[in-house]
Design a protein around this nucleic acid. Structure first.
Lengths: 144, 144
DNA sequence: CCATTCGTAGCAATCACTGTTACGAATTGA
DNA sequence: TCAATTCGTAACAGTGATTGCTACGAATGG
């Protein structure tokens, strides 16, 4: 199972909000910045709102704003929100009747849990604040 | 991007072959064991053949067999074969015009590389031979 | 009361993965 | 040489997840 564009989109949005904090930003403006449509933006924001990272306000001058210090928001947290309960290494369609299949499945689940932990540990090492700081020293060389 | 059932299926197949080594096994038999159809099995085997892990032989009494000692095949290697060039954390549809987007994309790619390395390091710690050994001491308790 | 913005539902479009059939190629054995 | 078996791969439909878009009700502020 996969994250598709959700992780990168989430990082983008939170970095935007962190840059403008404590100002609010409308989903319309974020959609333009992220080259996506406002509904997808709101869907993504919904997860982060539910996770307590942001708050939103309707009406004139409304929008979303961060609830936490960007220095305390790690990419691991973003990833957890986006990943949910999805398996990192994919699922297994094996049948419960076959003893071999059941064993393999059991071990794959175990390995999956360790892989998830390994990813989280790595992503915990970067914060949104770091990305904000580095966004102001653009890499001249493009990717890589 | 994701691995779906490919990783678990690959582990299943290699464990099967390791158990029967140095005998060969037909894709038909593997399909029955893995509860999948033979074509999907052959598609999966194709990747491992290309990676030099197995060899296949057509004709009567044909099938596939391992080329390496199961003790030297790590789950990290299986995962690399299955994962290919796919991103671990998903892709990013950002536009190359936006400076912010380009920066985020660059950093996400960087983080993705580190996450991939973290997964590989974790999966390197388990070998097919270990799974074979443990398959003979079935867990009585099902999953978890 | 009205304009703005959010939240969410609903629906079509796209994409990846899966399941199946089909056909040619290679190997074995009679 | 011929038949049977098995592989490798192409082609196509079916399924499920993600995405793009429109629409509508709800909340806020002027």
């Amino acid at each position: 199972m996969s994250t598709n564009t959700q992780f990168a989109l989430g990082v983008h949005l939170l970095t935007l909000l962190a840059t403008l904090a404590p100002e609010s930003l409308s989903s319309e403006a974020m959609a333009e910045s992220a080259m996506a449509n406002p509904v997808q933006i709101r869907r993504a924001l919904g997860r982060f709102r539910q996770a307590g990272l942001i708050a939103s306000k309707p009406g004139v001058g409304g929008g979303s704003h961060l609830l936490k210090d960007p220095a305390t928001i790690t990419l691991g947290e973003v990833w957890r929100v986006v990943q949910g309960e999805n398996h990192v290494l994919g699922s297994y369609p094996g049948d419960p009747d076959c003893a071999v299949g059941r064993n393999i499945q059991s071990w794959v689940i175990d390995v999956d849990r360790r892989a998830r932990q390994a990813i989280e540990d790595e992503l915990e090492r970067t914060t949104i604040a770091q990305l904000v700081a580095r966004a102001h020293e653009p890499r001249l060389d493009g990717i890589e």
